[in-house]
């Protein structure tokens, strides 16, 4: 059987694409954090001035996402089919909530991603606050972010989505170490803690922006 139809082969594909998506989350958080030093509009301007780079990046991300979702869904369906009759009583001793809900948090992330792109990238959901220019004639990303997150519904959806991502990561991060065969009995407990740690750090990083805006610590003075 070929690599892409084998059980471990597909597990490795999930791990590699998952790792790339994790790298994206780190880069994206780095970009977002520029809002704290007032460089977010300049960052947006810089990206928009490099269409080939941006589009190449987007294309790669789209492929990575598509592969991760395709294999994730097909594997989940296969695993579901492996136990057609459920237990009347089933107790898990070790399996975590985050591990058992990977497919559901994954699908929630896809739905959020579509909304997120419509909101911030295509600027279609809130055109009234998303298309103004700053005094240097650049797209006013700062205004768009601040006015968006002042809306409790938008901030709430964003924070909920970040929870789904954190849950997905807390299983996913420790999982790829095992999949690449880098684990031993000694490393497994540490790797599991580190995975949860990475998930928490990214969660706090992403959620800090809507929080400082809701709490009025960061504001738009236009």
């Amino acid at each position: 059987m070929q690599f892409l139809s084998s059980s471990v082969g597909r597990k490795i594909v999930m791990a590699i694409t998952g790792l790339m998506l994790l790298a994206f989350l780190v880069i994206h958080l780095f970009g977002n954090s520029l809002i704290y030093v007032g460089w977010i509009n300049a960052y947006g301007e810089k990206l928009h001035s490099l269409p080939p780079v941006v589009w190449a990046f987007r294309l790669v991300m789209l492929c990575v996402f598509a592969v991760h979702i395709y294999f994730g869904v097909t594997l989940a369906l296969e695993n579901n089919a492996a136990r057609p009759a459920p237990y009347a009583v089933k107790k898990n001793l070790r399996a975590t909530f985050s591990g058992r809900t990977m497919i559901w948090t994954g699908l929630l992330i896809v739905v959020f991603l579509i909304y997120h792109l419509l909101h911030f990238t295509m600027r279609m959901t809130n055109p009234d606050i998303s298309n103004s220019l700053d005094e240097l004639g650049r797209l006013d990303v700062f205004k768009m972010v601040v006015f968006s997150f002042k809306n409790f519904a938008i901030a709430g959806v964003y924070i909920a989505a970040m929870m789904a991502i954190a849950l997905h990561l807390s299983h996913g991060v420790q999982s790829f170490v095992q999949t690449f065969g880098l684990n031993s009995d000694k490393t497994i407990p540490t790797v599991e803690k580190a995975g949860t740690g990475v998930a928490i750090v990214l969660f706090l990083g992403y959620v800090s922006i809507p929080l400082v805006i809701i709490l009025g610590i960061m504001n738009y003075k236009g």
């Binding site: 059987m1 597909r10 597990k11 898990n92 070790r94 399996a95 999982s175």
Partner: peptide, 22 residues
């Protein structure tokens, strides 16, 4: 062996580690 496992209708490992616990 891993191919035979799939062919028999077993699922794929997603690192729950529930197996080790029991």
């Amino acid at each position: 062996m891993t191919d035979a496992m799939l062919k028999e209708g077993f699922g794929n490992c997603t690192n729950h580690y529930e197996c080790q616990a029991v």
